[in-house]
Every structure is written in structure tokens, then in C-alpha cells.
Nucleic acid binder design. Structure first.
Lengths: 161, 161
DNA sequence: CAGCTGACTTTGCTTTACCTAAGTCAGCCC
DNA sequence: GGGCTGACTTAGGTAAAGCAAAGTCAGCTG
């Protein structure tokens, strides 16, 4: 058996969690709709307007997000108005918030407007600014260059010749 | 002056760091190329093969990543081979690793293969598994539902009528 | 100096994402 | 019960992203 770590060439990335995640949220408008959902937007027209996409696209993406279980439709009624559905994040959708936070942080650092960011995230309990960080199970902060890649149980190797 | 927090309808998301980040890395093949770069891939053919994209697409995306400053080309020479260029992550590119880690983590949780993930990330210094987490400046761990959105200096408000 | 190899480029085509403009439809309001 | 409004859908078109297959080109190797 060849050494897994040394034989990086043989690793096939057909079972990659990043690729699987991108199958669900791999396009711009989907992620921006989730951004809006995380900021509290709930109504169809608001999603389309705030993301800056047309209604047909908003309808298709929202439908897909509901089908994928990231958003759910809930009936609601404003006083004196008819019943409607609103879109709210599910647990599955809410767990993408660290992805959005990491993207926002990178954008703040490397692609910011000179005026600064338009919004920032505060910890509800204490008001301090929130960041996405890497941390290991032993409790250490980890920098991007302090990572090792390890083969997991789902790794598929190329057929040996 | 209207209350910024209450007047969420007037916030324009034209200056959004997430959208700015997605202008650079907002498509699937770009993020998968960065995944490969973070796993140590350096050569053109390997990028195309491991990401599973055609050579024309790999060439175009890699060129754009270099132009955007996420990768840099460096000459290298294997013994007995001619000089070539390799692609390596810059600091700007490496700082996207938390985004990749958060995506991987979400994929592991919500879209995993029954066999488990193909790779996982270990802390180089101690070997423990690494996760992307949210943390506030005061040092508290923050869950996705413990976030408040605050207006920043770059926020643009819709013209009041 | 001819040939091999790695690193692309070119050509021609398909697919996906998105747009605008117009149409549909359900229900509360009067 | 006619109109208004919010929430979509349909139709028709453009642009970007992708593919496969073939071509180019530089510079070691022999």
C-alpha cells in the first residue's frame, strides 16, 4: 500500500465537501439571497430588490433554496393584509452564516470601499465585533499556513497501475 | 434623521463586502482552483485534472486569479527538466482559506458522502482537527443566531422622499 | 538539431445564468 | 364584485461559462 500522504497525485476529488457545498450554494445570486435572509429579509420583492436580481431569477433561486432545505416558507399576515408566505432560514441555511462571515471579512480586507464596509456583525450578547476564525479541537487559534491536509475515510484513490 | 437600525428598508447593498468578494471568487471553478492551491497543487495540468475542468477554462481562471493577486506565478525547475512556472497562493489568496474551511465544514455536515469526507484539516502544531468558528472581539464564541447586524461607515442609504 | 513534453491557445459548439417586458392570479378593501 | 397589490410565471433574447478536439510553442534530452 502506497503512503497516502505522499501520494497526493492519486487522490481523487470526486468526493469533496467543498464541491458538494458549491453544488448547493455555488453561484452568486444564491449566496446573496442567503446574505439577505441572514440580514432579516423575508419577502419576495425585497429579496429581488436588495440582491439586485430580476424577479424570475429570484423566484427560481428561492424555490431551489426551499427545495434544498436552506430556506422554508412560512405563512404570515400583516394586519389588514391578505395571508402571504415569507422565507426564513432553516438550521441548515443558518449554518452557512460562517461562510458568509468569512467572505465578508475577506471582502472587507481585500476589496473594500474606501469609505469602509456597509455593515458589520456584532455579538448580540456583548456588542463586540464578530470574526470568522480557524480553531483546532485542542483550542488553539490556527492561521491559514498552520494547516495540514489529512486523508479522510471517504477518500477515493486513483486505480493503481 | 431616521433611525438607521429600524430603517433596514433604506439600506442599499451596493457596497457589500460579500458581493465584492464574490466578484473575485464567485464561481465554482475559481473556488475549486483555490482549494487545489491550498492543498498544494502547483502545476497547470494538475489544476485542470484535479478540479475536473477543461484546459481552456483552467487557463482563463488561473490567469484571472493571478491578475487578481490571489495566486502568483513563480519559475521553478525540476532536475533534468526545463524551467516552468508554478502557481502558488499569495497572502491575499491564503486569507480565503477560512472561506474554504467553512464551506468544507458545511458540506461535511449537510451534504456528505456516507463514507465520510475525503480530507480533513489538522492543526500542524498539534494534529487536532480544525474548524471555522465565529468569535467576537471580546473572546466569546458566537452562534449564527447570536449575531446582530450593525450599519458601517460605508453604508449607503436610499434617497429619502 | 529532431523529438518529446508541459503548458497553454484556438476553434466551434452547448449550456447556464441572467435580463426586460408582459401576463397571471389570489385575496382583502371598499 | 371591481380594483389594487404582492407574488410570482411566461416568453423571448443576450452574455458568460463551459466542453472537446486540435494546434502552437519553448526548451531540455538524446
Amino acid at each position: 500500500m502506497t503512503d497516502l500522504l505522499a501520494n497526493r497525485d492519486a487522490w481523487l476529488m470526486t468526493n469533496c465537501s467543498i464541491a458538494r457545498a458549491l453544488d448547493v450554494v455555488g453561484n452568486r445570486s444564491t449566496l446573496l439571497l442567503l446574505r439577505e435572509a441572514s440580514l432579516g429579509t423575508r419577502r419576495f420583492d425585497d429579496f429581488a430588490a436588495r440582491v439586485g436580481i430580476s424577479e424570475p431569477v429570484a423566484a427560481a433561486r428561492l424555490k431551489q433554496l426551499v427545495a434544498d432545505g436552506l430556506l422554508e416558507r412560512r405563512p404570515y399576515q400583516e394586519p389588514g393584509k391578505r395571508t402571504r408566505d415569507e422565507y426564513v432560514l432553516t438550521e441548515k441555511g443558518a449554518q452557512l452564516i460562517p461562510v458568509l462571515a468569512a467572505l465578508r471579512q475577506w471582502g472587507d480586507t481585500w476589496a473594500a470601499d474606501p469609505a469602509g464596509p456597509s455593515v458589520w456583525l456584532a455579538h448580540h450578547d456583548c456588542g463586540a465585533e464578530v470574526h470568522a476564525v480557524l480553531r483546532c479541537a485542542a483550542g488553539h487559534d490556527v492561521e491559514p499556513d498552520g494547516l495540514d491536509v489529512r486523508p479522510g475515510p471517504g477518500l477515493i484513490l486513483a486505480a493503481t497501475e
